[in-house]
Amino acid sequence: MFHEHMRARLSNKEYLNWIKAGQCLCILARGLQPFIDCEMRHFHADLLNHNTLLRRPCESFCRPSGNKLLEACRFCSEWQTTILAHHRQPQNTVNWDNCSPVSWRTDHWEVAKAFMPRGQGKVRGADQFDASALLNLINSCDWFHSVAPKPVREINVAVWNEQNVIRYRNELMHSSDFLVSDTWIKHYDSALRNFILLFRNVVPMRRAEQQIKQMLQADLSIHVHGLDQTDSDDIVTDFVHEINADSIVQWEAELLQQRLQEVLEETDQTSALSAEELKILESFFEANKDLGVRFSSQLQNMNLLRKSP
């Protein structure tokens, strides 16, 4: 029924650039996950070894109220103090509502989430965290600046992190029209390559580097025609061979879902999105009726938040 909207959308090169760039973030996250999981296990064990109070269970089922951790028991308070001591920007907002304090003693990821952006409360396990969460963890937790691969320790991590990969990620996810230019993609590619070089000794990151290179070089428009014709002689690598029209549509849906979730959080918590940005988003979904139907509940919630006083 909405086949024409999908075809028109996926024939736009700048829109396909947006999808490709988003998929690169997923590849990057998969490359980082094993390394970060291992390091957070070591970090958690190190904290427990150096402070016996952290080994004691919570006394009163402590949990955040909003984004505050108030009236915590003495053991959860000790965890809170310890986390802040290892936070590179403790003066910034620490998202305590990401965490379940009762699990700090036993779950290294519950500790890790205190160093991540908001919205991680329901996330469990290394393979569920996206690139933004993992990049912010590396940037915020001082453990990584003592144990990370040597090149990371030799440069100003805040510069390459915040001004490069995280900045490009935020530009991508805050593109209200979901379009990015070829020039932007070239700069993005350079930022990703420079970041991955810092982890050249991490095997999954070497694999991620190759997959990101193939993704950015792939002509997704070839595979869009796979809506009618699925095979192409232009497919030259195993990774690219796995791409088909269905996978592109799935990447699109996942990226849009993530963007709409961020819109809801931003509008609910900070009212950061302007009326103009919301109008552009609405116009996009009105013009692409298949997506408007697919994401109707999120769009309805977004409108309710915008109209609320």
Rank of each mutant, 00 (worst) to 15 (best):
Y15T: 02
M173D: 00
L227Y: 02
M6I: 09
E14K: 10
Q128P: 05
R118V: 14
K20N: 05
R206V: 04
E162A: 15
Q120R: 14
E242R: 15
A72C: 03
N303E: 00
S271E: 04
K122H: 11
I196T: 03
M302S: 04
I166Q: 09
M6Q: 09
D177Q: 06
Y15L: 11
K113N: 05
Q214R: 14
D182W: 03
E154P: 00
E71C: 11
C26P: 06
E286F: 10
S232I: 00
I212D: 00
W96I: 07
A114M: 00
L260I: 01
T270C: 13
A131P: 00
H3D: 13
P117G: 11
R7H: 12
P57R: 13
K213E: 02
F115I: 05
H42K: 14
N301W: 03
S11I: 04
V249S: 14
D37T: 09
S296K: 05
V94Y: 01
S271K: 12
A148L: 02
D177H: 06
Q163M: 14
E262Y: 10
I27W: 01
T93S: 15
E282Q: 13
K13S: 10
L70Y: 01
I166G: 07
E282W: 07
V236M: 11
N170P: 00
N139H: 05
R55Q: 14
E171L: 12
A72M: 04
R56F: 03
C38G: 12
I166A: 09
L70V: 11
I243E: 02
V102A: 12
T267G: 11
I222K: 15
N51I: 04
N95P: 01
D97I: 03
A21V: 00
D228S: 10
N156Y: 06
L299Q: 06
A191H: 00
R118M: 13
L16H: 05
T230N: 11
W184F: 12
C141V: 00
L10G: 06
S247F: 06
R7W: 07
S65Q: 10
H241F: 11
D127F: 05
V180M: 10
F285Q: 03
H5N: 12
W160I: 15
C58T: 01
F115H: 10
R9Y: 08
E162S: 13
A253G: 11
S60H: 07
S11E: 08
L227A: 13
F61T: 12
H225Y: 02
N156R: 15
A114E: 04
N303I: 02
L53Q: 07
R63S: 15
T93G: 14
S100E: 09
D107E: 06
Q120P: 05
H187E: 15
R124M: 11
L255C: 09
V94Q: 06
T106K: 12
F115Y: 10
M302N: 01
E252C: 09
F178K: 02
D46T: 08
C99T: 04
V159K: 13
H187F: 12
F2I: 04
E209M: 14
E277A: 14
L134I: 03
S100M: 11
M205N: 10
A133L: 03
D182R: 01
L135H: 07
L48P: 00
A158C: 04
A85N: 09
F61R: 15
S65A: 15
D233T: 04
Q261P: 02
F115L: 10
L28G: 02
T82S: 10
S176F: 00
I185F: 06
N244A: 08
S283H: 03
P57F: 09
